[in-house]
């Protein structure tokens, strides 16, 4: 497969940025960027919805309780983004074909969004402070539990946010707007001081 280039390549220089980390409160804020192997949006309608959900659960070995719960394992991450809409990240490159075959059989719709989003991960106990500068949702743990996802926006740039753990979030940002989003996130995080790392698992 041809190597994918992201608009953020070369933009995120590893190392420390922004307010210098003073000794007594070292900033543990880390930001990293990754493109995802494959990303697909599945759409189901009320009648065929149940069939599609069970298909997805079988394919991904994850259970979908509904609402905003966003289960994940080694291979798959499912993010409900609206009524009957699921954004699914798969680690394998050819996931699209499988989804198309199985979901279409259940009369759902499958759209490849692999190139349409760039993923930025931000982690550290200042992560909520930085994100709350530009995104109008409540990032507290009770309002936004771990392993759930939200659709919101910053400055009219739509994005999907998934809480990976207590203070780490994956941000799925539109590719064409990724640099503008990064320009904001960099400025917002510089107030606290942050580290760019290759890959935070």
């Amino acid at each position: 497969m041809v190597e994918k280039t992201s608009p953020l390549d070369g933009l995120l220089k590893s190392g420390h940025h922004g307010r210098p980390a003073n000794s007594d409160a070292p900033a543990d804020l880390k930001i990293s960027h990754r493109t995802c192997e494959s990303l697909v949006q599945v759409t189901a309608w009320p009648k065929t919805g149940k069939g599609i959900v069970t298909t997805l659960e079988k394919m991904t070995h994850l259970s979908l309780e509904g609402g905003n719960s966003s289960p994940a394992n080694e291979d798959f991450t499912i993010m409900p983004t609206g009524p009957g809409k699921y954004l699914i990240e798969a680690q394998s490159g050819d996931a699209i074909g499988q989804f198309q075959k199985k979901v279409l059989a259940e009369k759902g719709a499958v759209t490849d969004l692999t190139h349409a989003r760039v993923v930025i991960r931000i982690s550290g106990d200042q992560a909520m402070w930085v994100l709350a500068k530009g995104i109008a949702i409540d990032f507290s743990l009770q309002a936004f539990p771990v392993a759930t996802s939200r659709n919101s926006a910053h400055h009219q740039i739509g994005l999907t946010i998934r809480r990976v753990n207590e203070n780490a979030f994956d941000l799925f940002v539109f590719t064409s707007l990724a640099r503008s989003f990064w320009h904001w996130l960099d400025r917002a995080a510089k107030e606290v001081g942050y580290e760019i790392v290759r890959e935070i698992k």
Partner: peptide, 13 residues
């Protein structure tokens, strides 16, 4: 009508 709309402006060059 059973129709799904997904913006793919950013998916395609």
């Amino acid at each position: 009508l059973k129709v799904s709309l997904v913006s793919v402006t950013d998916q395609w060059a």
